[in-house]
Design a protein around this nucleic acid. Sequence first.
DNA 1: ACAATGACTGAAT
DNA 2: AATTCAGCCATTG
Length: 118
Amino acid sequence: MDEPLSFYEKVFETARQIPYGRVTSYGAIARFLGSGKSARLVGYAMNLSHMAFPPVPAHRVVNRNGLLTGRMHFETPGTMQRCLEEEGLTVRQNQVLRFEEHFWDPSEHLKYSDFFKN
DNA sequence: ACAATGACTGAAT
DNA sequence: AATTCAGCCATTG
């Protein structure tokens, strides 16, 4: 029963690989999944990731500029920032400071076929 | 089958 | 440098 994982499930699984204290972008996940133009769908997936199990560290996914564009979708608008700061990052005006230093690109660290068969 | 829905992005202005 | 536009595409009703 190796049913192909849905796109969203792949997004969840990819996001789970983001290391503690690092961040990535919607677009980076989309590119890793071979669908570079589906960044919006990655955001949509994060919205659904609430109900996913195992849990998804959705706070580690920001936009390409390091902005916490998803913060409104957490329990409170400050939750996302607090989670990141707890992991040692600094957030000012909804943006991760020194974003590039903390950016973690799945395509550089993971091999697609190690996770998915299609 | 078709239209609507987005936590986006790169290019144009 | 900041803001706007249009394309994007897997799901869902």
